[in-house]
């Protein structure tokens, strides 16, 4: 592991100043000299693999609990601090009752040990990755820009079929992000220069020609929390995750659904797909096809076809299209059948 200096940030201001690389530095935060750590479950792993090599690790766990460590719930929605742990949000009674899709994505992610440690700020920033990214002896455009992609013609069974490029087909592995993008969440960001709020859907970047750039965050910028607007669709919401094994496994395909029904007719629907795309993926084409229509299995299948119409498969991941469609169909019908 690359040696690093460890420091604890006593305030938000101190944290972003410590993370500020100064003017003119254009490296993405994942390659910056100074990087933030909260739960450390992703960071320590990649540091041990020599994939991430910060010179300075800034521990942000002591930042103001009132701003970072709480979940606030009112009629307008949720405000979730970035240092709330996955398990804390999973156990929150309002999230459980009024935002079940958030509860599902957390409960079905990782293990309880990891969920006790991992912060929600760090969770959405977990690296988009594949086996070749983790193993530093292989070429990887994400780890070493320009070195080539070992996955394109390699072992690519778990790789993405949506949002891919000729430079990278690594899958965005997270679950919680699918709930956030489905529910039109917003992300609060504090940086060396300013505070800003963006739509969650604007946070992640498709790989294109620069797969080493995974988000629109600048070095020194810190996620401070998420705002999830309330709506009639949040209670009828659900996450279905299809995996190689029943627990403690990344999704081969998943679907987050939030549904507002008038009888059988779809008034509003939000669909996000996990395990199949390079970024948290909102399936707008499928949503448009459903709105105003009575939901049944035939319609759900048409929506699933639309969601995967642009899929680009490689040698070993062609199965993700049918399994992704089945996952979406099941998720839609199970969400419709929910007793809310």
């Amino acid at each position: 592991m690359h040696p690093f200096a460890y420091q604890r940030a006593s305030s938000e201001q101190a944290a972003v100043e410590a993370g500020n690389p100064g003017p003119g530095v254009r490296r993405p935060p994942t390659e910056a000299a100074a990087q933030f750590v909260a739960g450390g479950t992703n960071m320590s792993d990649y540091m041990r693999l020599n994939v991430t090599r910060p010179d300075v690790l800034i521990d942000i766990n002591e930042l103001s609990p009132s701003a970072y460590g709480h979940i606030e719930a009112d009629s307008a929605g949720l405000r979730i601090g970035a240092l709330v742990r996955m398990a804390e949000a999973e156990d929150h009674p309002v999230i459980r009752s009024d935002y079940p899709v958030i509860h599902d994505t957390l409960k079905l992610a990782a293990t309880r040990q990891i969920r006790n440690m991992a912060s929600l700020g760090g969770n959405v920033l977990q690296r988009t990755r594949c086996e070749y990214f983790r193993e530093a002896s292989f070429p990887c455009n994400k780890r070493q820009p320009g070195s080539g992609c070992s996955a394109l013609d390699g072992f690519n069974r778990r790789h993405a079929v949506l949002g891919v490029s000729d430079a990278c087909i690594a899958t965005y592995p997270g679950d919680f992000a699918q709930a956030l993008i489905a529910l039109d969440a917003r992300v609060e960001i504090m940086g060396p220069q300013r505070r800003r709020t963006i739509a969650f859907s604007e946070l992640h970047r498709q790989p294109g020609g620069t797969p080493n750039v995974e988000t629109g965050l600048a070095p020194g910028e810190l996620i401070t929390g998420y705002v999830v607007p309330a709506g009639p669709h949040t209670r009828r919401s659900r996450y279905v995750k299809t995996r190689d094994r029943e627990s403690y496994q990344f999704a081969l395909a998943s679907a987050a659904i939030a549904l507002d029904l008038d009888g059988a007719t779809v008034k509003d629907v939000r669909i996000a797909l996990g395990g199949v795309a390079t970024v948290p993926w909102r399936a707008h084409e499928a949503e448009q096809l459903l709105v105003g229509q009575p939901l049944d299995e035939t319609l759900a299948r048409r929506a699933a076809d639309a969601a995967f119409a642009q899929a680009r498969t490689r040698e070993h991941n062609g199965y993700k299209v049918p399994i992704g469609k089945e996952t979406l169909v099941r998720a839609l019908l199970e969400t419709q059948a929910m007793d809310v």
């Binding site: 460890y6 750590v37 450390g40 521990d59 040990q113 990891i114 440690m117």
Partner: peptide, 11 residues
């Protein structure tokens, strides 16, 4: 419960 392999001791 937490994983001690993924925790830096200083933290």
């Amino acid at each position: 419960r937490a994983l001690s392999c993924m925790s830096f001791a200083v933290m």
